[in-house]
Amino acid sequence: MANTSMQIVSPTTLWAVRVRSVLGGLRRAPKIPSLVLLVFMIFAAFGQWIAPYSPVAVDMAASFSPPVWHEEGSADHLLGTDKLGRDILSRLIRGARVSLSLSLFVIGLGGGVGVVLGLISGYSGGKVDAVMQRGIEVILAMPTILVALVFVFAVGRSFESVILILSPFLAARFARIVRGETLSVRERDFVAIAKVIGTPTWMILLKHILPNVFNTIIVLATLEVGHLILLESSLSFLGVGVPPPQPAWGLMVADGREFLTSAYWITLFPGLCILAAVLSLNLFGDWLRDTLDPRRRQL
């Protein structure tokens, strides 16, 4: 019979289980969405060295050149140019940074705040919950675009002001959904047991509630990225989004709208980028959700 302490699970075993499950999860990551997101992230990080032209370089002589596979297209501008002769490909590559970082910042800031508020609201219940929920309803009842218009006119048009104005709306959506999930998780027996043990409330929220509402948060976050890119384009269209001539995908779609029949490429390619990013993020989010759930892991 071995010494008892020999049988005690070793820290390496504990970590091996965790590491193996992460590696196993990575192997099952969706290939194409991961690749798409990786490419967009590289564009966002190193766009200024990859893009063949400056995204704001105007060349009126080359305006409305079609993509290379058209008869009039030239290899100088692979995806054509817009009405000011700016290279679409370069603008897409540089626009990745604006569109993706805007979404990430808003989700990080708004989503983070929303999750914390939702956890507190759902877990405390009673008056705290009632007051917070009325506040959230006020925010959700406000028309996003109108509020953004007023805010941007007051504060000035910039990347930061777009983040600041979109974050509270996102926070409200997150808070509402996380609260609902929290209400159901807090009734589970392991939360009651944690209270019996005397686990501090912040630890109950962090270790028992949060990991069990994480699925919802991931799914919501990936869905909201698409929503945010579209919101950004609506704001740009109304002239209160990311200020031109900075390239952003939504802005580019809005720019090309007038020429949809004559120069479809101005709108099509940024539209495809938005589609690819949103779809990839959703598929990636599904995978992340499954990987983080111990029940779905295969060891």
């Binding site: 019996v196 069990n212 111990p294």
Partner: peptide, 15 residues
């Protein structure tokens, strides 16, 4: 301390 009825609900599935 306490032991509850449903062992599926009394253990946090993520721990």
């Amino acid at each position: 301390q306490a032991v509850f009825q449903d062992p599926y609900s009394s253990l946090n599935p993520r721990m």
